[in-house]
């Protein structure tokens, strides 16, 4: 999932200074699953923000709503239908949803209620780890399923570097060295020789964000206009 983390409430409040009627929009997908921006968290914000606002002498009217997913407009539209439009929306979805909102909302300002961190997986309840950097040209076939781009601090493709110590990355003793994980995995699979003889050439980063904002267009799925 896309792992997000709620922004500090003070930051959120700071965005809202010029606005009166605010909608806090929660997302029932990734943001909910990492307990940062689902219905629960949005409602918590809806409780706390007005209190903090009042303390600061701000006149803030806050409403919370959550939809299944903010990154598909059909889910959001009904929430924003009706005459009682907010002046601003704080989106607790990942940046994708927030962007989509901005693309659609025109005169209504959109703010991020979370920081979008990474594509990751749950390692333990309440713990998520970056697993994928969305490079667009997956090399996991050669690294036994462990991503050297996302899980090595230097995105080394032929690692480990000299900074790996006791299986941990030089930048942080709590960070696993992604490449040691790859080596261990290769060993467990009896594929150390493969690893030894595999040289991964310099990556073509064009398929990643370095190649520009990306888009997927499936012509076979396109719905023709009636």
């Amino acid at each position: 999932m896309i792992v997000v983390r709620r922004k500090p409430i003070e930051s959120i409040l700071a965005f809202l200074a010029p606005y009166r009627k605010v909608l806090l929009l929660g997302c029932g997908s990734c943001a909910a699953v990492c307990f940062a921006g689902g219905e629960k968290e949005t409602e918590e914000m809806a409780c706390l923000l007005p209190v903090m606002a009042a303390d600061k002498g701000m006149d803030l009217e806050v409403r919370a709503a959550t939809c299944q997913r903010v990154c598909d407009w059909e889910f959001v539209e009904p929430v924003l239908a009706g005459d009682d439009k907010p002046d601003a929306v704080v989106s607790f979805s990942c940046g994708a949803g927030t962007n989509l909102l901005a693309d659609h909302l025109g005169a209504i300002r959109v703010f991020p209620g979370v920081d979008t961190l990474f594509i990751g997986a749950t390692t333990e309840h309440g713990q998520w780890q970056e697993m994928c950097s969305g490079c667009g040209d997956c090399v996991l076939d050669r690294t036994f399923g462990i991503c050297p781009i996302a899980r090595c601090s230097k995105s080394i493709l032929n690692g480990p570097c000299g900074g790996s110590k006791d299986g941990k990355c030089e930048i942080n003793p709590e960070t696993d060295c992604g490449w040691i994980k790859i080596v261990e995995r290769a060993q467990a699979l009896g594929k150390l020789d493969d690893l030894a003889s595999t040289y991964i050439a310099p990556k073509n980063w064009a398929s990643s964000h370095h190649g520009g904002p990306r888009r997927v267009k499936r012509e076979d799925l396109k719905i023709a206009k009636p």
């Binding site: 230097k154 040289y199 050439a201 310099p202």
Partner: peptide, 11 residues
């Protein structure tokens, strides 16, 4: 880290 050290050697 466009390239790693081994890729650099090869380059």
């Amino acid at each position: 880290y466009d390239v790693d050290s081994i890729q650099l050697v090869a380059m």
